[in-house]
Protein backbone atom coordinates (compact mmCIF):
# COMPACT_ATOMS: atom_id res chain seq x y z
CA UNK A 1 0.00 0.00 0.00
CA UNK A 2 1.79 3.03 -1.28
CA UNK A 3 0.79 6.50 -0.26
CA UNK A 4 0.22 8.17 -3.62
CA UNK A 5 -3.14 9.60 -4.55
CA UNK A 6 -5.09 7.93 -7.34
CA UNK A 7 -8.36 9.85 -7.01
CA UNK A 8 -8.09 13.51 -6.21
CA UNK A 9 -11.29 15.53 -6.01
CA UNK A 10 -11.01 19.21 -5.16
CA UNK A 11 -13.90 21.41 -4.13
CA UNK A 12 -16.48 19.35 -5.97
CA UNK A 13 -19.90 20.91 -5.65
CA UNK A 14 -23.26 19.98 -7.09
CA UNK A 15 -26.27 22.25 -7.04
CA UNK A 16 -29.71 21.20 -8.17
CA UNK A 17 -31.37 24.57 -8.55
CA UNK A 18 -31.14 26.30 -5.18
CA UNK A 19 -30.35 23.11 -3.38
CA UNK A 20 -26.70 22.23 -2.80
CA UNK A 21 -26.43 18.45 -2.69
CA UNK A 22 -22.63 18.36 -2.37
CA UNK A 23 -20.73 21.37 -1.07
CA UNK A 24 -17.01 21.80 -1.79
CA UNK A 25 -15.91 18.28 -0.98
CA UNK A 26 -12.24 17.30 -1.18
CA UNK A 27 -11.54 13.61 -1.45
CA UNK A 28 -8.18 11.88 -1.72
CA UNK A 29 -8.11 8.17 -2.34
CA UNK A 30 -4.74 6.50 -2.05
CA UNK A 31 -3.60 3.90 -4.51
CA UNK A 32 -4.37 0.40 -3.34
CA UNK A 33 -6.61 1.25 -0.42
CA UNK A 34 -10.23 0.51 0.37
CA UNK A 35 -11.87 3.85 0.95
CA UNK A 36 -15.26 4.03 2.64
CA UNK A 37 -17.63 6.91 2.02
CA UNK A 38 -20.30 7.08 4.68
CA UNK A 39 -23.26 9.31 5.31
CA UNK A 40 -26.97 9.29 6.12
CA UNK A 41 -29.64 9.06 3.39
CA UNK A 42 -29.55 12.08 1.15
CA UNK A 43 -26.12 13.18 2.39
CA UNK A 44 -24.73 13.31 -1.14
CA UNK A 45 -22.81 10.04 -1.48
CA UNK A 46 -24.30 8.98 -4.79
CA UNK A 47 -23.97 12.48 -6.20
CA UNK A 48 -20.30 12.56 -5.18
CA UNK A 49 -19.57 9.16 -6.70
CA UNK A 50 -21.34 10.16 -9.89
CA UNK A 51 -19.31 13.35 -10.11
CA UNK A 52 -16.04 11.51 -9.59
CA UNK A 53 -16.94 8.99 -12.27
CA UNK A 54 -18.08 11.79 -14.67
CA UNK A 55 -21.69 10.61 -14.79
CA UNK A 56 -22.81 13.90 -13.28
CA UNK A 57 -21.18 17.16 -14.19
CA UNK A 58 -19.93 19.01 -11.09
CA UNK A 59 -21.20 22.56 -10.71
CA UNK A 60 -17.73 23.41 -9.42
CA UNK A 61 -14.48 21.62 -8.71
CA UNK A 62 -12.10 19.23 -10.39
CA UNK A 63 -11.53 15.49 -10.39
CA UNK A 64 -8.28 13.82 -11.27
CA UNK A 65 -7.88 10.11 -11.80
CA UNK A 66 -4.21 9.23 -11.56
CA UNK A 67 -3.26 12.80 -12.34
CA UNK A 68 -5.56 13.13 -15.39
CA UNK A 69 -8.56 15.42 -15.34
CA UNK A 70 -11.42 13.33 -16.68
CA UNK A 71 -14.18 15.92 -16.41
CA UNK A 72 -13.04 17.81 -19.49
CA UNK A 73 -12.86 15.09 -22.13
CA UNK A 74 -15.90 12.82 -22.60
CA UNK A 75 -13.89 10.12 -24.34
CA UNK A 76 -10.84 10.32 -22.07
CA UNK A 77 -8.85 7.05 -22.06
CA UNK A 78 -8.52 7.47 -18.28
CA UNK A 79 -12.12 6.25 -18.07
CA UNK A 80 -10.94 2.75 -18.88
CA UNK A 81 -9.28 2.77 -15.46
CA UNK A 82 -12.54 3.07 -13.56
CA UNK A 83 -15.47 0.76 -13.00
CA UNK A 84 -18.65 1.55 -11.12
CA UNK A 85 -21.48 -0.43 -9.63
CA UNK A 86 -24.28 2.04 -9.19
CA UNK A 87 -26.79 2.10 -6.39
CA UNK A 88 -29.58 1.70 -8.93
CA UNK A 89 -28.69 -1.27 -11.04
CA UNK A 90 -27.87 -0.04 -14.52
CA UNK A 91 -28.46 -2.98 -16.83
CA UNK A 92 -30.52 -3.44 -19.98
CA UNK A 93 -33.32 -5.42 -18.43
CA UNK A 94 -34.93 -6.53 -21.67
CA UNK A 95 -32.00 -8.67 -22.84
CA UNK A 96 -30.19 -11.60 -21.26
CA UNK A 97 -27.52 -11.69 -18.58
CA UNK A 98 -24.92 -12.92 -21.06
CA UNK A 99 -25.81 -10.19 -23.54
CA UNK A 100 -25.40 -7.53 -20.86
CA UNK A 101 -22.01 -8.84 -19.82
CA UNK A 102 -20.84 -9.26 -23.41
CA UNK A 103 -21.97 -5.73 -24.17
CA UNK A 104 -19.65 -4.35 -21.51
CA UNK A 105 -16.76 -6.36 -22.89
CA UNK A 106 -17.56 -4.97 -26.34
CA UNK A 107 -17.83 -1.38 -25.11
CA UNK A 108 -14.42 -1.70 -23.51
CA UNK A 109 -12.98 -3.15 -26.73
CA UNK A 110 -11.77 -6.37 -25.09
CA UNK A 111 -10.69 -8.83 -27.79
CA UNK A 112 -13.30 -11.53 -28.27
CA UNK A 113 -11.32 -14.54 -27.07
CA UNK A 114 -10.06 -12.74 -24.00
CA UNK A 115 -13.59 -11.49 -23.30
CA UNK A 116 -15.12 -14.97 -23.45
CA UNK A 117 -12.47 -16.26 -21.05
CA UNK A 118 -13.15 -13.48 -18.58
CA UNK A 119 -16.91 -13.92 -18.88
CA UNK A 120 -16.59 -17.60 -18.13
CA UNK A 121 -14.27 -17.06 -15.17
CA UNK A 122 -16.29 -14.24 -13.61
CA UNK A 123 -19.69 -15.84 -14.12
CA UNK A 124 -18.42 -19.01 -12.52
CA UNK A 125 -17.01 -17.03 -9.62
CA UNK A 126 -20.32 -15.23 -9.09
CA UNK A 127 -22.40 -18.38 -9.54
CA UNK A 128 -24.16 -16.84 -12.51
CA UNK A 129 -23.76 -19.77 -14.89
CA UNK A 130 -27.33 -21.11 -14.64
CA UNK A 131 -28.73 -17.66 -15.28
CA UNK A 132 -26.77 -16.57 -18.33
CA UNK A 133 -29.63 -16.91 -20.82
CA UNK A 134 -32.31 -15.42 -18.60
CA UNK A 135 -33.64 -11.94 -19.13
CA UNK A 136 -32.27 -9.59 -16.47
CA UNK A 137 -35.89 -8.55 -15.89
CA UNK A 138 -36.64 -11.95 -14.38
CA UNK A 139 -33.77 -12.03 -11.87
CA UNK A 140 -34.14 -11.15 -8.21
CA UNK A 141 -32.45 -8.01 -6.93
CA UNK A 142 -29.43 -9.79 -5.49
CA UNK A 143 -28.75 -11.65 -8.73
CA UNK A 144 -29.11 -8.47 -10.75
CA UNK A 145 -26.44 -6.98 -8.54
CA UNK A 146 -24.12 -9.89 -9.25
CA UNK A 147 -24.59 -9.27 -12.96
CA UNK A 148 -23.84 -5.58 -12.43
CA UNK A 149 -20.66 -6.54 -10.59
CA UNK A 150 -19.42 -8.71 -13.43
CA UNK A 151 -20.21 -5.93 -15.90
CA UNK A 152 -18.29 -3.41 -13.82
CA UNK A 153 -15.12 -5.47 -13.46
CA UNK A 154 -14.97 -7.17 -16.86
CA UNK A 155 -12.43 -4.61 -18.11
CA UNK A 156 -10.33 -5.01 -14.95
CA UNK A 157 -10.48 -1.40 -13.77
CA UNK A 158 -7.77 -0.07 -11.50
CA UNK A 159 -10.30 1.76 -9.36
CA UNK A 160 -13.66 0.25 -8.57
CA UNK A 161 -16.49 2.40 -7.23
CA UNK A 162 -19.30 0.63 -5.41
CA UNK A 163 -22.38 2.57 -4.33
CA UNK A 164 -24.02 0.63 -1.50
CA UNK A 165 -22.99 -2.69 -2.97
CA UNK A 166 -24.41 -4.83 -0.18
CA UNK A 167 -27.76 -3.08 0.30
CA UNK A 168 -30.48 -5.69 0.04
CA UNK A 169 -28.15 -8.67 -0.14
CA UNK A 170 -28.53 -11.80 1.98
CA UNK A 171 -25.79 -12.74 4.44
CA UNK A 172 -24.13 -15.23 2.10
CA UNK A 173 -24.00 -12.76 -0.77
CA UNK A 174 -22.71 -10.06 1.52
CA UNK A 175 -19.82 -12.20 2.64
CA UNK A 176 -19.17 -13.30 -0.92
CA UNK A 177 -19.02 -9.67 -1.96
CA UNK A 178 -16.67 -8.79 0.90
CA UNK A 179 -14.38 -11.60 -0.17
CA UNK A 180 -14.56 -10.39 -3.74
CA UNK A 181 -13.72 -6.83 -2.74
CA UNK A 182 -10.80 -8.02 -0.62
CA UNK A 183 -9.62 -10.26 -3.44
CA UNK A 184 -9.72 -7.46 -6.00
CA UNK A 185 -7.98 -5.17 -3.55
CA UNK A 186 -5.27 -7.74 -2.88
CA UNK A 187 -4.65 -7.79 -6.63
CA UNK A 188 -4.08 -4.06 -6.63
CA UNK A 189 -7.52 -2.62 -7.35
CA UNK A 190 -8.29 0.53 -5.42
CA UNK A 191 -11.79 0.41 -3.94
CA UNK A 192 -14.12 3.33 -3.27
CA UNK A 193 -17.34 2.24 -1.61
CA UNK A 194 -20.32 3.79 0.10
CA UNK A 195 -22.27 1.93 2.71
CA UNK A 196 -24.83 2.33 5.46
CA UNK A 197 -23.43 -0.60 7.40
CA UNK A 198 -20.84 0.43 9.93
CA UNK A 199 -19.68 -3.13 10.49
CA UNK A 200 -18.94 -3.25 6.78
CA UNK A 201 -16.91 -0.06 6.97
CA UNK A 202 -14.95 -1.39 9.94
CA UNK A 203 -14.52 -4.78 8.34
CA UNK A 204 -13.30 -3.58 4.95
CA UNK A 205 -12.09 -0.03 4.92
CA UNK A 206 -8.56 1.25 5.37
CA UNK A 207 -9.86 4.78 5.55
CA UNK A 208 -13.30 6.32 5.75
CA UNK A 209 -14.85 9.72 5.21
CA UNK A 210 -18.23 10.83 6.51
CA UNK A 211 -20.41 13.24 4.58
CA UNK A 212 -23.50 14.93 5.99
CA UNK A 213 -25.79 17.43 4.26
CA UNK A 214 -23.28 17.69 1.44
CA UNK A 215 -20.34 18.57 3.70
CA UNK A 216 -17.42 16.31 4.39
CA UNK A 217 -17.29 16.22 8.17
CA UNK A 218 -14.46 13.91 9.01
CA UNK A 219 -12.00 11.48 7.43
CA UNK A 220 -9.33 9.07 8.62
CA UNK A 221 -8.79 5.43 9.52
CA UNK A 222 -11.58 3.82 11.55
CA UNK A 223 -9.20 3.62 14.52
CA UNK A 224 -8.32 7.30 14.28
CA UNK A 225 -11.96 8.28 14.13
CA UNK A 226 -12.86 6.13 17.12
CA UNK A 227 -9.96 7.58 19.07
CA UNK A 228 -11.09 11.03 18.02
CA UNK A 229 -14.32 10.80 19.98
CA UNK A 230 -12.80 8.64 22.74
CA UNK A 231 -12.03 4.94 22.67
CA UNK A 232 -14.16 4.07 25.69
CA UNK A 233 -17.93 4.18 25.29
CA UNK A 234 -20.45 4.12 28.09
CA UNK A 235 -24.15 3.52 27.35
CA UNK A 236 -26.66 4.26 30.04
CA UNK A 237 -30.23 5.42 30.53
CA UNK A 238 -30.99 8.80 32.02
CA UNK A 239 -33.77 9.45 34.55
CA UNK A 240 -36.33 9.58 31.69
CA UNK A 241 -35.19 6.17 30.47
CA UNK A 242 -33.65 7.65 27.30
CA UNK A 243 -30.48 5.95 26.15
CA UNK A 244 -27.40 8.18 26.46
CA UNK A 245 -23.83 7.76 25.29
CA UNK A 246 -20.60 9.16 26.71
CA UNK A 247 -17.11 8.69 25.33
CA UNK A 248 -13.81 8.83 27.18
CA UNK A 249 -10.26 8.86 25.99
CA UNK A 250 -9.15 7.41 29.24
CA UNK A 251 -10.34 4.20 30.85
CA UNK A 252 -10.02 5.66 34.36
CA UNK A 253 -12.35 8.52 33.43
CA UNK A 254 -14.83 6.08 31.99
CA UNK A 255 -14.79 4.03 35.19
CA UNK A 256 -15.18 7.12 37.34
CA UNK A 257 -18.14 8.22 35.26
CA UNK A 258 -19.83 4.84 35.59
CA UNK A 259 -19.43 4.97 39.34
CA UNK A 260 -20.99 8.42 39.42
CA UNK A 261 -24.21 7.09 37.86
CA UNK A 262 -27.09 6.26 40.22
CA UNK A 263 -27.02 2.74 41.58
CA UNK A 264 -28.99 0.23 39.54
CA UNK A 265 -28.75 2.12 36.20
CA UNK A 266 -28.26 -0.26 33.33
CA UNK A 267 -24.82 0.60 32.08
CA UNK A 268 -22.86 -0.93 29.23
CA UNK A 269 -19.20 -0.19 28.92
CA UNK A 270 -17.39 -1.13 25.70
CA UNK A 271 -14.97 -0.01 23.02
CA UNK A 272 -16.08 2.78 20.73
CA UNK A 273 -17.00 1.61 17.21
CA UNK A 274 -17.74 3.23 13.86
CA UNK A 275 -21.45 3.26 14.64
CA UNK A 276 -20.70 5.59 17.55
CA UNK A 277 -18.51 7.81 15.41
CA UNK A 278 -21.15 7.98 12.72
CA UNK A 279 -23.94 8.86 15.12
CA UNK A 280 -21.81 11.38 17.00
CA UNK A 281 -20.79 13.13 13.82
CA UNK A 282 -24.08 13.09 11.93
CA UNK A 283 -26.45 13.32 14.88
CA UNK A 284 -28.67 10.68 16.33
CA UNK A 285 -31.95 11.98 14.98
CA UNK A 286 -33.05 10.39 11.75
CA UNK A 287 -34.42 13.66 10.44
CA UNK A 288 -32.25 16.35 11.91
CA UNK A 289 -34.54 19.18 10.93
CA UNK A 290 -37.57 17.74 12.69
CA UNK A 291 -37.97 17.03 16.36
CA UNK A 292 -37.59 13.31 16.37
CA UNK A 293 -36.19 11.38 19.28
CA UNK A 294 -36.09 7.67 19.43
CA UNK A 295 -36.80 6.16 22.77
CA UNK A 296 -35.27 2.76 23.04
Amino acid sequence: MTGDIIVRARGITKRFGDFTAVDHVDVDVRRGEIFGFLGPNGAGKTTTIRMITTLTQPTEGTVEIDGRDITKDVSSPAKEDIGIIQQHISLDKDVSVLENIRYHAILHRIPRKEAEERIERLSRMMGLEPYMDRLVLNLSGGWKRRVAIVCAIIHEPRILFLDEPTAGLDTQSRHMLWDLIRGLNANGTTIFLTTHYMDEAEELCDRVAIIDHGHLVIQGTPEELCMGIGSWAVEYRDSDGVKQYRYFTDMEQSRAFQESLPLGSRVVSRNTNMEDVFLEVTGRDVVATEEVTFRI
Binding site: L55, A78, K79, S90, H108, H155
Partner: peptide, 8 residues
Protein backbone atom coordinates in the same frame (compact mmCIF):
# COMPACT_ATOMS: atom_id res chain seq x y z
CA UNK B 1 -24.74 5.73 -18.10
CA UNK B 2 -22.57 2.82 -19.15
CA UNK B 3 -21.89 4.50 -22.49
CA UNK B 4 -20.15 7.31 -20.64
CA UNK B 5 -18.06 4.99 -18.50
CA UNK B 6 -15.95 3.81 -21.39
CA UNK B 7 -13.81 5.95 -23.61
CA UNK B 8 -16.39 6.19 -26.41
Amino acid sequence: DELFLCSM
